[in-house]
């Protein structure tokens, strides 16, 4: 084929629907997230934000429509799932570190078993990313010996060790004490500055304004509004968005 090479777009949702039993939790989701784009997802509790991003790396299944990551369909095909999980990292509200492993071993386990790195390679890479999140000195400690903010930065480093092209964040700061939120958001902002594709579920609106290319508002399983941060905050089109913003901004 001739002509300019069309780079595969990062993530596409086409008419995605999901139900938990009778509960319709994703309704006709259409969304494209381009390579390098940063998207913030917000919305009331139970609106389907976590479900939306968990479908991207198949932590959840969906019943109709299609999601593609880098051109690969997210379906039940084991090879597709493996390839997608190789490209997509995820950070959770509760860190989900391995409590029985040191910080270093938390970062090397999957490198060794999924990527096949030797112990020394894996440890070198782990130290590289622990430096990036500014906690190399904690490498030999266990998760319970770290503050929440440090644990979340370890979780970010652990994901980065797998060299993902896309990072998903599910309310990464909502389990943290207020004074620890900043350090995690700073780490995420740095990552964004380096060109990582990111989807963040968060209610940190300062972060959204600073980092996001687009903000998505979800309600009742549907995307109600997508806009650039300035329009989203200063000039929301939908009544539901306005109501939500007035609730969380004060």
């Amino acid at each position: 084929m001739n002509g300019p090479i069309q780079k595969d777009v990062g993530i596409t949702f086409s008419k995605v629907n999901k139900w938990y039993g009778a509960l319709h939790v994703l309704r006709d989701i259409d969304l494209t997230v381009h390579d390098g784009e940063k998207v913030v997802v917000c919305g009331p509790s139970g609106s389907g934000k976590s479900t939306l991003i968990r479908c991207i790396n198949r932590l959840e299944e969906y019943q109709s429509g299609e999601i593609k990551v880098g051109g690969i369909a997210v379906d039940s095909n084991r090879r597709n799932i493996d390839q997608i999980r190789r490209r997509v990292g995820m950070v959770f509200q509760n860190f989900n570190l391995y409590p029985h492993l040191t910080i270093l071993d938390n970062c090397t386990l999957a490198q060794r078993w999924v990527r096949g790195f030797s112990r020394s390679e894996a440890e070198e890479r782990a130290m590289h990313y622990l430096k990036r999140v500014r906690i190399p000195d904690q490498a030999s400690k266990y998760p319970s010996q770290l503050s929440g903010g440090q644990q979340q930065r370890v979780a970010i480093a652990r994901s980065l060790c797998m060299s993902p092209e896309i990072m998903l964040f599910d309310e990464p700061t909502s389990a943290l004490d207020p004074e620890l939120v900043r350090e995690v958001l700073d780490t995420m902002a740095e990552l964004a500055g380096e060109g990582m594709t990111m989807i963040c579920v968060t209610h940190e609106m300062g972060f959204a304004k600073q980092v996001a290319d687009r903000v998505i508002f979800m309600d009742d399983g549907a995307i109600v509004e997508i806009a650039e941060p300035r329009d989203f905050f200063d000039n929301p089109k939908e009544e539901r968005t306005r109501k939500f913003l007035s609730q969380i901004l004060h």
Binding site: R54, N57, L59, M90, N96, Y98, A110, R158, M162
Partner: peptide, 23 residues
């Protein structure tokens, strides 16, 4: 929940069982 972390890192469920759950 910790299973989600392992899955997102690409670990197979037997690996998760062996290296995370059992210990």
């Amino acid at each position: 929940e910790i299973q989600n972390a392992s899955a997102s890192l690409g670990l197979r469920s037997w690996q998760h069982t062996l290296f995370v759950v059992l210990p």
